[in-house]
Simulated assay, not measured.
Amino acid sequence: MMKEEALNEFVDFVIQERMQRAFSRMKDGKELGREDEIERKYQEAVALLPPDKEQAIREYCDAIFDSGADAEQFFYRLGLKDGIRLHKIIKNILKELS
């Protein structure tokens, strides 16, 4: 049981380190507050449109964000499957060694 706990801790550590590195790389080079500035400009531009055009633009942006969320979910699940597969492989290796 101790080996399995150690394995779980190791896998958790590797996953956390990987996620932190990936997040740090993603954030590197991005200006602080840039998203807020973009959102403000978007709201200003949309406010100048007639209501029907404003609604069309908002629906278009929502569709883009939704498709991005779908891709994010796909890659998250793919990474999760890889992590589970790695966990099983390491567990089998440890079982073989003992």
Rank of each mutant, 00 (worst) to 15 (best):
40 R>L: 06
82 D>H: 05
41 K>D: 09
12 D>S: 11
64 I>Y: 07
23 F>W: 11
18 R>L: 00
90 I>A: 05
75 F>L: 10
77 R>L: 10
36 D>W: 02
40 R>D: 08
55 Q>E: 14
69 A>K: 03
89 I>C: 02
89 I>R: 08
11 V>H: 08
96 E>K: 14
7 L>G: 03
47 A>P: 07
92 N>P: 00
25 R>V: 05
67 S>H: 10
79 G>H: 10
65 F>A: 09
76 Y>G: 01
38 I>P: 01
19 M>L: 12
44 E>P: 00
75 F>K: 04
18 R>M: 03
93 I>L: 13
35 E>G: 02
37 E>R: 04
73 Q>D: 11
83 G>L: 04
41 K>C: 05
22 A>F: 08
12 D>V: 06
80 L>H: 12
83 G>F: 04
30 K>V: 13
23 F>V: 12
88 K>Y: 12
51 P>C: 05
66 D>H: 13
50 P>H: 07
88 K>G: 04
64 I>N: 03
27 K>L: 15
16 Q>E: 15
97 L>C: 00
12 D>E: 14
15 I>E: 12
98 S>I: 04
83 G>E: 10
38 I>Q: 05
71 A>V: 15
9 E>F: 06
12 D>A: 11
77 R>S: 04
49 L>M: 06
46 V>L: 01
35 E>Y: 02
48 L>F: 09
5 E>C: 07
35 E>M: 07
31 E>S: 09
23 F>L: 15
96 E>S: 15
48 L>S: 10
41 K>V: 09
31 E>I: 05
64 I>G: 01
22 A>N: 08
83 G>N: 12
75 F>A: 02
16 Q>H: 09
18 R>S: 03
72 E>H: 14
39 E>C: 01
83 G>P: 04
16 Q>N: 09
10 F>E: 08
65 F>Q: 10
90 I>G: 02
93 I>A: 15
30 K>Y: 14
78 L>P: 02
68 G>I: 14
26 M>V: 03
66 D>F: 14
21 R>A: 11
60 Y>T: 08
46 V>G: 01
95 K>E: 15
22 A>Y: 07
33 G>T: 06
43 Q>T: 09
4 E>P: 00
17 E>G: 10
67 S>E: 14
82 D>K: 02
42 Y>F: 10
54 E>G: 08
14 V>I: 12
20 Q>H: 09
36 D>H: 04
65 F>H: 09
50 P>V: 12
90 I>K: 03
65 F>P: 00
36 D>E: 14
8 N>A: 15
83 G>C: 05
68 G>N: 12
89 I>S: 04
37 E>V: 03
